[in-house]
Design a protein around this nucleic acid. Sequence first.
RNA 1: GCGUCCGUGGCUCAACUGGAUAGAGUUUCGGAUUUCGGCUCCGAGGGUUAUAGGUUCGAAUCCUAUCGGGCGUACCA
Length: 531
Amino acid sequence: MKQRVSALLREKLGREVVLEKPRDRSFGHFATPIAFSLAKELRKSPMVIAEELAASFGDVEEFASVESVKGYLNFRLSENFLAEYASWALQNPAEFATQKKNQKILLEFVSANPTGPLHIGHARGAVYGDTLYRLAKHLGYDITAEYYVNDAGNQIDLLGLSIQLYAREHILGEDVEYPEAYYRGEYLEDLAQGAIEKFGKEIFSDESRQKELAMWAKDEVMKIIVKDLGDTNIFFDTFVNESGLYADWDRVMQKMGDGVYEKDGKVWIASEAKGDDHDRVVVREDGRPTYLAGDIVYHNQKFERGYDHYINIWGADHHGYIPRVKAAIEYLGYDSSKLEVLLSQMVSLLKDGEPYKMSKRAGNVILMSDIVEEIGADALRFIFASKKSDTALEFDLAEFKKQDSSNPIFYIQYAHARIQTLLSKAEVSKDEIANASLKNLGEQADTLLFDALLLPEVVDDAFHSRQVQKLPDYLKSLAASLHKFYYDVRMIGTPDEAKLLKMLQVVALSLKTGLALMGIEAKNRMTKEEE
RNA sequence: GCGUCCGUGGCUCAACUGGAUAGAGUUUCGGAUUUCGGCUCCGAGGGUUAUAGGUUCGAAUCCUAUCGGGCGUACCA
């Protein structure tokens, strides 16, 4: 819709114009401040230019009116145009807001270490990533969701050790001394029990078998992680294991050429020359590659697989890591601007206004699965998708347990359900609704219809600006318009019933499509929450 | 110290990326409706957009400085 208007203006004015939604709908459907930017080169006042431009439009089929107000150019779409577009959307719901795109994108996100269940910080990145993924898919991109499994390095050894220590204390009843760093949490109990079945109790007391235990355990932990993600409607296309990458290290190191050098018995990458604070070690004195080496091989592999664009979603605590990875990509001979790193910020939780108590059994973190259990996956997704990912976030769990307008999920779902209820009570037939004309709806219904038809613009904008919160914001405001309309206008049994219900079908389509893009299923009926 | 993200009603967040009167929810108070609803709708109150300058037709948004906060500053991942 916007593209169509945009194209019209480009044709008319011979340049790209900024198109925006006026704050006040009485100004029209779309507006542009183009006259202001033209004022300087034409040496005329913006008002005059706007007047002239408005007059020059004359009769265009798509517009009911073009007006100039205080230098702005305001467009009102014609009923014909809106009605046709709406009917098309109802007949082609799958294509609503979709377009074929010829771009391959690799999206890497979550990538949490397989040393324990996901916590609340991971959840934010996971929801952000998955929402972007759904948006891109819907927009027609060829996008792949990938999880990088850090199944090598010290933290895996630590996992083996942690299970042994846990089992020796709680299962074998020994006195054990814990080192400074080790993992804790209820999941260790399950892992220990599983290990007994698999290996027998002896494995806990044999330090030389720590590695064996760890390699088994990290796969088990990955199963937990994949389940947690699945419970939240998040799925990955591919998993890449860090441990499988190091075999390729020598070749990749060669490939970087002058980008790496030897000094003090170690191998360094000359990242400072590419904007990093200083050069970094990639191979230690004892010959073991560092974590960075693994990431370099991984990114080389990504580029060799050949995508047009790469998106990584990292926790904000990794932001200092970006320059060195970009440096490596350039030494490998690739265009580092193809890699886009999005950061997701920290999360803190409130419950009834008080800081959320850390779960004791989980050690010192809040588990994603606990939150899902408490408020449901839909609410969790909604919260994290609702806020800009680059700002720190605080939220109150209590807000999402209520059944009223303060709970946006309930509010939106209720809007959708209300429409379904009305449709089921309709006194006119399905055919009558389908064949109804969407013209002469009246101003309020017209506005609602227009709002519903904005979904494609919102989806497009949300993805390209990487600001997924625009989608839930839009859904909230669409739901509000619907509730207001429902309150103001009686539909069943009136002469306009068929056309109004048809209009509501468009609203329902946008709500349902929008919710699906957030990984949430639209409900046809609100059910009381069982205690 | 340096890097980086940020600072918007009492609280949690928006603001179409430089546009029209800075908007929602929550809280408080008052009203309306009761077309399946435990809902829903309307109104009122609340703002020098951290502070001070600058850029221009126009700034919450861009630039500079100051103040305050998060994160980072590993041969850990």
